[in-house]
């Protein structure tokens, strides 16, 4: 298991190298000049050239790439053009909102999706099952940004229960932090919850048809005991895959959700940086997100091994 983890960690290096080259090429080959954005709409071309020179954008591309890579290898992701601060600091300041949003969304998806799937499986082919699955289908289909806007209109504009947009750091006021993230997390987590419910239901149904479940029933065990002790652990492997994959999807979805709810997270930073052509931030953020994605997948794989002894054995 340890060797496998080390091997997986080593794969980070080539993956990040490829990501670095691709991102650098893509953003530099696309039209759009950060100096022009910084200088504003009414700036003269002379002023834009002056800024390009100050920002080092008039140097040849290979030279710019080399200088960025050597700095990145030393752990320095460069300085944001637009925010006038180190990229690593910009990212650090925005990890908390994105991290908490993803975490809350994941919790929502588990709290809603898992019981919904189990209840549907237990009541298969009844109205409860159909209602749950139709709702889940709706949940998968509804775009999170649209659902987010509906939530804002209902809970913020009409009822005025929750704030429409913004953010308060957890360290400043945990309760206010929750108030600001409840709606974004719910809108982001709904899709993952719906997907989870559907997978848990089919997985449970499959497990409930297994011989050992029939044996357990024949032994006269109570239905709840069978469900909790025998069926659920075995039905959890596919659910774990979905939860693991959801982390990636949720991180991606956070980009849109953060825009809708004006949450100052990494997703909104990336979108704004693309529009501002803030090259160092785009490069640094994409590299970081790629690394996080790989690490999350690694954690999920380790969790498989913990849950399923067969995988643990196989990896020896």
């Amino acid at each position: 298991m340890g060797t496998q983890i080390i091997r997986r960690l080593l794969t980070l290096v080539p993956v990040l190298a490829v990501v670095a080259v691709v991102v650098f090429m893509l953003i530099h080959l696309a039209p759009g000049d950060p100096a022009a954005v910084m200088a504003g709409n009414e700036a003269t071309s002379e002023r834009i050239e002056q800024l390009r020179h100050q920002m080092g954008l008039d140097r040849p591309l290979p030279e710019q790439f080399l200088s960025w890579v050597t700095s990145a290898l030393r752990g320095d992701l460069g300085e944001s053009y637009f925010l006038n601060q180190p990229v690593s600091l910009s990212l650090m300041q925005r990890i908390e909102p994105t991290g908490l949003l993803t975490l809350y969304a994941l919790l929502f998806s588990i709290v809603i999706g898992l019981p919904a799937g189990i209840i549907a499986a237990m009541n298969r082919n009844t109205w409860i099952d159909r209602l749950t699955m139709v709702t889940a289908l709706g949940g998968v289909c509804i775009p999170s940004f649209w659902f987010g806007i509906l939530l804002i209109l209902f809970f913020a504009v009409s009822l005025r229960w929750l704030p429409a947009a913004g953010y308060v750091p957890f360290t400043e006021d945990p309760l206010a932090n929750l108030r600001y993230l409840v709606m974004p997390a719910f809108s982001l987590g709904l899709q993952a919850a719906a997907l989870l419910a559907r997978v848990v239901r089919s997985s449970m149904l499959e497990v409930l048809r297994e011989d050992y479940i029939r044996t357990a029933r024949a032994k006269g065990l109570r239905e709840r005991f069978i469900l909790v002790r025998h069926a659920m652990p075995n039905a959890m492997i596919p659910a774990l895959t979905i939860i693991g994959n959801s982390m990636g999807t949720l991180l991606g979805g956070a980009v849109v959700t953060e825009a809708v709810f004006n949450t100052p997270g990494v997703g909104r930073l990336v979108v704004q940086s693309v529009l501002r052509r803030d090259f160092p931030v785009i490069q640094g953020a994409v590299l970081t997100i790629a690394a996080v994605y790989i690490l999350v997948n690694l954690v999920v794989d380790i969790a498989y091994a913990v849950v399923d002894p067969r995988i643990r054995e196989g990896s020896r």
């Binding site: 806007i149 913020a156 504009v157 005025r160 704030p163 429409a164 947009a165 809708v260 709810f261």
Partner: peptide, 11 residues
């Protein structure tokens, strides 16, 4: 739309 909703909701 967030700016608009923000003024409507008192934010």
């Amino acid at each position: 739309s967030v700016r608009l909703a923000g003024v409507q909701s008192g934010e």
